[in-house]
Amino acid sequence: MTGRNQTIVSEFLLLGLPIRPDQRDLFYTLFLAMYVTTVLGNLLIMFLIRLDPHLHTPMYLFLSNLSFSDLCFSSVTMPKLLQDMQSHVPSIPYAGCLTQMYFFLFFADLESFLLVVMAYDRYVAICFPLHYTTIMSPRLCLFLVVLSWMLTTFHAMLHTLLMARLHFCEDNVIAHFFCDMSALLKLSCCDTRVNELVIFITGGLILVIPFLLIIMSYARIVSSILKVPSAKGICKAFSTCGSHLTVVSLFYGTVIGLYLCPSANNSTVKETVMATMYTVVAPMLNPFIYSLRNRDMKGALGRVFYKKKTPFSL
C-alpha cells in the first residue's frame, strides 16, 4: 500500500464501558449526575475566587486554574460517553478522535503541572512564611501558570502529530470509552516504536519528574512542620496539605499505574476502570476534597451569597 493517503479508516467504533445492557440506563443516570456535579462544583470554585477579593492569592489563583482544567478534562470525554451510552453505533470520526486525544493529553498534562505548582506554593507558605509574599510574587505566579500551559501545549501537540502519521487499515474498534493513545497504538497497522519511545521518554518528564518534585516538596514540609512546637500549628499545616495530597494520590496513582506500566499487563477492564477514576471521579471529587471543605472558600461563599442585610427602619 503506497501513496499519500494510506489511512483507510475514516471513523472508529468505541466499545465504551463494560456494562450489561440492562444496566445501561442506571449507569447513564449515574454518569450524568457525576458530570453535572463536576461542572457545577468547578464553576462554583472559579466563580467564588473571581468575585471574592479575599481569595485573590497565589494559592487560589492556582486552584482556579486547576478547577478550569478539571472542568475541561471531564468535558473532553464525558459528553461523548453519555452520547454513546444512548447510541446503538457509538462511533467517532478519525479527525474527531485525534482532536479528543489532543485535548485529553492537554488537560491531563495541565493538571499534572498545576499540582506541582500548588505543592511548591504550599512548600513556600509553610517553610518560608515570612518571605511568602516576596517569593510568590504576582510575576512568578503568572510565569508558573503560563509555563504550565506552554509545556502542555507542546506535549499534547507532539503526540497528536506522531499519531497522525500512523496508518489504520482495517480494525477500527477501540476497546475504550474515548480515544486513548495506547488503545489507538494497538490498532495501527504500521511501526509504532517511535511513538512508544516518545511516550516512555515524555512520560518520565510529564509524570514521574513532577510526581518526584511533589514528594520532595512534602518531605521538606513534613520536616519543617515537625519542628513546630505548637500542636495546633502542626494540625493546621497538615490540614492545609491534606486535601492536596489526596488529589495528588488520586490523580498520579491511577495515571502512573496505567501509562507507565507495560500495556500487556493491564486487562481492558482494568484500563477502563482506572481511566474512569481519573477522568470522571477525580474531577468530580476535587472541588469537595480541595476547596469546598476549605474555611476560606466557605467564608467566600457566605460573603457572596449570604451578605448581611441592613436592618429595616422607618
Rank of each mutant, 00 (worst) to 15 (best):
Thr99Gly: 02
Gln100Ser: 11
Met101Asn: 09
Met101Lys: 00
Tyr102Ala: 09
Tyr102Pro: 01
Phe104Tyr: 14
Phe104Met: 06
Phe104Ser: 09
Phe106Tyr: 10
Phe107Met: 01
Ala108Leu: 11
Asp109Lys: 09
Leu110Trp: 13
Glu111Tyr: 08
Tyr120Thr: 08
Tyr120Asp: 04
Arg122Gly: 12
Val124Ile: 13
Ile126Met: 12
Cys127Ser: 11
Cys127His: 05
Phe128Lys: 15
Phe128Asn: 14
Pro129Glu: 11
Leu130Ile: 10
Leu130Ser: 09
Tyr132Trp: 05
Thr133Cys: 12
Pro138Ile: 04
Pro138Trp: 14
Leu140Gly: 05
Leu140Glu: 03
Leu140Ala: 04
Phe143Leu: 01
Ser148Arg: 03
Trp149Gln: 04
Phe154Lys: 06
Phe154His: 08
Leu158Asn: 14
His159Ala: 00
Thr160Gly: 05
Leu161Ile: 08
Ala164Gln: 12
Cys169Trp: 12
Asn172Thr: 08
Phe177Tyr: 08
Cys179Asp: 03
Met181Glu: 00
Leu185Asp: 02
Leu185Met: 01
Ser188His: 06
Cys190Gln: 02
Cys190Tyr: 11
Thr192Leu: 09
Thr192Val: 12
Arg193Cys: 06
Val194Arg: 15
Val194Phe: 15
Phe200Lys: 02
Leu205Arg: 07
Ile209Leu: 08
Ile214Asn: 05
Ile214Tyr: 10
Met216Trp: 10
Met216Ala: 09
Ser217Tyr: 13
Tyr218Trp: 07
Tyr218Gly: 00
Ala219Ser: 14
Arg220Met: 02
Arg220Ser: 03
Ile221Pro: 01
Ile221Ala: 04
Ile221Trp: 01
Val222Ser: 03
Ser224Thr: 15
Ile225Tyr: 11
Leu226Asp: 12
Leu226Met: 12
Lys227Tyr: 09
Val228His: 13
Val228Leu: 12
Pro229Ser: 04
Ser230Trp: 01
Ser230Glu: 05
Ala231Lys: 04
Lys232Arg: 04
Ile234Ser: 01
Cys235Val: 14
Cys235Thr: 15
Lys236Ser: 11
Phe238Ala: 01
Cys241Glu: 09
Gly242Thr: 01
